[in-house]
Design a protein around this nucleic acid. Structure first.
Length: 581
RNA sequence: GCGCCCGUAGCUCAGCCGGAUAGAGCAACGGAUUUCUAAUCCGUAGGUCGAGUGUUCGAGUCACUCCGGGCGCGCCA
């Protein structure tokens, strides 16, 4: 099934061919409702190229354009734009088709790729904090969208489980560990000993040296240290899993830094042998003398003391993802401060002959109400787990106020769906590079571009169907599963708000693929907001269950379709919808 | 010093490949409910798109310069 945009674009290029003109310009959604539904600037581009009047060219193109089956006679406007307005009967037909389509009109990608998506990447022995949420939420949404579009996605959690911090954790474990505290809250105790050791190491050179020794022993395979390390990793993973469950995140593989540990020497050797890397001041470096902005910024891949660093690990990771996982593309959902690092890594990969599509997908920071990096009152990172729990309990309180009759279990379930959704949506609805100001009041607000607003649109739809199911003769049949599907042989839209809503529904298929152009889930979020808005407007002006046939069936169909697009769209963002709220 | 990102309404933000008179939401003000959830809808008001120059039929968008904020840059990750 083709979108209106694709259909019109095809008709336009047919017309251009008939007139003997090259295929230029673009056919896009109209920038303003006054200009109809779609517009093309083809005549403007041609006019410039050929030095002819755009308006005359537009008329010539229109004379050969055969689009009467889907739109009103197109009009030339402005400097030479051609505006298209969809015919209502074409929208009615399309809505009918969408009703029967599992994919709601969304086509799969023409070339399907195997994509490794690296996102989340928490550090062992440190709690996950707000700083991790954007990577997790963005990466998960992109993974969901890419899979829906037919790509083979491998979600990889590149856990920081092998850094220098382990020298300190092990020293702290041996010297400061409180076993009882460990039993009560393992991760908190590990964090405590890590912090305390860190403090001591800064002021006491002896402790610092002792930590270094512990790290050397660990890396040499010392049994005792390896056991401690294993235990710490296991405790941290438990904590991560808890958060992932709350957020509904899953990974296909979790190859942390330690996974690549024994591949590091070979990686460096190979780069030295091929001449890509060289020794400078005792360290092994890669220089980028031919790239102006990188000439004075070499990448160290082996330290003077023989140790490896994160660049080495990332290069070994590239090898693994390409050679073993056979990835066509690798997406790194990592914060903006690391753009330079990835520029270097990708350039080295290119020099090694890797042709895969490497993408760094950077994002901005989360700021507190004071516009500075979000921290707790005491200046610490805000633990993600606590943040999510607060979101859920705040949401639960609001549910309590608005809908006190729900059962206790329902309130908890709904509170969780709304709370988690609010946190995710606040992030995803904004352009990823913009630093964003965290605000409970804004994200949990029931007005405006928020998760609860979208969820409410869905809930209103579900409520209609709960009532309608009782009277199946009205054109609603209860199906297996919880969802009754509306059917209507011939849909009829008369009200302005019905037509607007239906057109909006047809645009779902145009918006979803766009997200991957520049990795912007906010395109989908904004679309869903507009859809919810159109639905609410329709809901206000068009009674559904109380209307007469054939309107009633048509409207039920619109409700059904709206509900399915909202549910699917939010699902692609990793957001769940409640049945009631 | 070099490099990257950001600067749009009082506040929070859209505006990806250059398109028509720059859009939402919040807050403010004014309306709408015997109605399928008012957790909503409709309306009003609000702008030299940080400043300037250039490129062109056309610039919030592209190029250059400057201002302001954030971040990154050989042995942390």
């Amino acid at each position: 099934m083709e979108t209106f945009q694709a259909l019109l674009a095809n008709k336009l290029s047919d017309a251009l061919a008939k007139v003997g003109l090259p295929k230029v310009g673009e056919l896009t959604p109209a920038t303003d409702p006054r200009f109809g539904d779609y517009q093309t600037n083809a005549a403007l581009v041609l006019g410039k190229q050929r030095g002819e009047s755009p308006k005359t060219l537009a008329e010539r193109i229109l004379a050969c354009l055969d689009a009467g089956d889907i739109c009103e006679p197109p009009a030339v406007a402005g400097a030479g734009f051609v505006n298209f307005t969809l015919r209502t009967d074409a929208v009615e037909r399309k809505a009918g088709e969408l009703l029967l389509d599992e994919r709601l009109g969304v086509a799969t990608a023409e070339s399907k790729k195997r994509i490794v998506i690296d996102f989340g990447s928490p550090n062992v022995a440190k709690p996950m904090h707000v700083g991790h949420i954007r990577s997790i939420v963005l990466g998960d949404a992109l993974a969901r969208i890419a899979s829906f579009l037919g790509h083979e996605v491998i979600r990889d959690n590149h856990i920081g489980d092998w850094g220098t911090q382990f020298g300190m954790v092990i020293w702290g474990w041996k010297n400061l560990l409180d076993r009882q505290a460990l039993a009560r809250d393992p991760l908190a105790e590990i964090v405590r000993i890590y912090k305390e050791t860190n403090q001591r190491a800064t002021s006491d050179p002896q402790v610092r040296e002792a930590c270094r020794q512990e790290l050397v022993k660990l890396q040499a395979g010392d049994r005792e240290n390896l056991d401690i390390w294993n235990e710490c990793v296991a405790f941290s993973m438990q904590d991560f899993e808890h958060v992932y469950k709350l957020l509904d995140i899953h990974y296909d593989i979790q190859c942390g830094e330690s996974f690549y540990n024994d591949r590091l020497p070979a990686t460096v050797d190979r780069l030295l042998k091929s001449g890509i890397a060289e020794i400078s001041e005792g360290a092994v470096c890669v220089f980028f003398r031919d790239i102006p902005e990188l000439t004075d910024k070499p990448c160290i891949i082996r330290k003077r003391d023989g140790g490896f660093n994160y660049a080495t690990t990332d290069l070994a990771t590239v090898d693994y993802r390409i050679n073993d996982l056979k990835a066509d593309a690798v997406w790194y959902v990592v914060g903006a401060p690391q753009v330079l690092h990835f520029k270097q890594i990708f350039e080295i990969a290119r020099r090694e002959g890797y042709t895969a599509d490497f993408r760094h997908i950077p994002f901005g920071s989360i700021l507190g109400e004071d516009r500075k990096l979000m921290k707790t009152r005491s200046g610490e990172n805000v633990p993600l787990r606590e943040l999510l729990e607060e979101a859920c309990s705040r949401a639960r309180k609001i549910v309590e106020e608005k809908n006190p009759d729900l059962s206790e279990a329902e309130k908890i379930d709904i509170g969780q769906k709304i709370g988690v959704a609010a946190v995710k949506y606040a992030d995803l609805s904004q352009y990823r590079m913009t630093d964003y100001a965290f605000s409970w009041d804004r994200m949990l607000s029931l007005h405006g571009n928020t998760a609860p607003y979208l969820q409410n649109a869905y809930v209103r739809i579900r409520s209609i169907f709960r009532k309608a199911v009782a009277t199946p003769q009205w054109g609603v049949e209860a199906q297996t599963g919880h969802r009754p599907v509306a059917t209507a042989d011939k849909l009829t839209f008369t009200d302005r708000s019905e037509i607007n809503l239906a057109k909006r529904l047809c645009q779902f298929a145009e918006n979803v693929p766009q997200v991957l152009n520049d990795f912007r889930p906010n395109i989908l979020a904004n679309y869903l907001f507009e859809l919810a808005n159109s639905f609410h407007t329709f809901y206000e002006s068009c009674p559904v269950l109380k209307s007469e046939e054939p309107l009633r069936s048509s409207r039920l169909a619109l409700c059904d379709l709206s509900g399915r697009v909202l549910q699917r769209g939010l699902d692609l963002l990793g957001i769940k919808v409640p049945e009631k709220m």
